[in-house]
Design a protein around this nucleic acid. Sequence first.
DNA 1: GTCTATAAGAAGATAGAC
DNA 2: GTCTATCTTCTTATAGAC
Lengths: 179, 179
Amino acid sequence: MVRSNTREEILAAAARLFATIGYKGTSLQVIAAAVGCSKATLLYHFATKDDILATLVAPPARDLAALAEKLDRLDAAAARELAIEGFVDLVLIYRQEISLIFHDMTYLFHAPSFAELKVLSERLAIVLAGGSTDAQALLGVNVMMAGIAAVALDRPEHGDVDLRGALIGVARRALVTNA
Amino acid sequence: MVRSNTREEILAAAARLFATIGYKGTSLQVIAAAVGCSKATLLYHFATKDDILATLVAPPARDLAALAEKLDRLDAAAARELAIEGFVDLVLIYRQEISLIFHDMTYLFHAPSFAELKVLSERLAIVLAGGSTDAQALLGVNVMMAGIAAVALDRPEHGDVDLRGALIGVARRALVTNA
DNA sequence: GTCTATAAGAAGATAGAC
DNA sequence: GTCTATCTTCTTATAGAC
C-alpha cells in the first residue's frame, strides 16, 4: 500500500496503543496491523521501537521545558497558578503521550533520554506545591498530577472546554492552599 | 534450593515486579531470578503466569467486595466517609496489587475474572461522588482514586500513620463537597 | 519440590527483491 | 517506500530426571 503520510499514521497508532496497553505490551506486529503495513515498514520509518517512543515523547517534553522556563520568571503564587493551568493544558494537548509516560514511567525513566523529563516534572511539582519541598504538600501534588494524567486518557471526545475547567478545579482543590 | 514458602516468595516478587514494570513487562525469567529459582519451579506452584496475577488480585478484590457491601447499608453521607477511609486503607494494605491493577487496567479488564472488580470499583466511585452520577463529580473521584493508587506505590517505607492521614486529606479536598 | 532440557511461538531487527 | 523471508533472542509452557 502506498501512502503519503505513513510516518504520521504509525505515530498516531503507536500513541494510542502505547497509552492504552503500555510500551512493553505493544508489539511492532500490533502497531503494523493497526496501520495496515508490515513490521519492516515500521522499521524503515523508525530505526527501532524505542525510536518511535522517543519521537512521541519529544513534543510534550519540549513544551514542558518551555513551561518550566516561564515559571522560573514568576513569584511562587503566580507560578503556581500558571503551573496548574499549564499542566492541565499539556495533559489535554498530549493526553496519549502523557498517559504513556505515566504508564511506563518506571521503564522510561531508566532510559537516559528521559532523565531530563524527570527533572522537569520534579521542578513542576515543587512549583505546584507552592515552592515548598514539604512532603505532605508534594504528596498532594503527586496525587493530583498522576490522577489527572490517568483520567485524561479516558476522555478522548470533545467538550474539552468543560473538561479543562473541571480538571483545573480538581487540581486547585487537591493542592493545599497553605498561604 | 529447598524452601518452606517458595509459593509466598514467588507471590511477593511478582507483586513487586508487576507493580513497577507491569504485567507484560515482567517475564517469568525475571521473577525466577528475583526469587532465586527456575522458571519451572514457578510453573510448578502456579499453572500459568496469569494464575500468579489472579492469585495476587484475589485478596484486594475480596476486601473491596466486603467494603462495597458495608457501604450499601449506610446513607450517602456516611457511606462516603467510610468509602474514603476504606479506599485509602485498601490502597495502603494492598499497594502493590492495586498499583498493578491500575497499571495494567486495560489489559486486565479484558479478562473475564476482572469484570467483577470493574463493577465494584465503579460502585465505589459512585459512593465517593456522594451518590451522584454527575460527570464532574465522578471526574474528581477518578482523579483522586487513580492519583492515590499511583502515589501509594512510591512510598513503601513506614510512617504509614502520617501517609494514611495525608491521603485521606487529599481525598477529602479533591472530592467536591456539594452538600 | 526443584531442576535441566527443550518445545513452539512471538519478539525486535535485518537483507534483499521489487 | 513497502514487501516477504529470515535471523536471533526471548517468551510461556512442558517433559522428565532427581
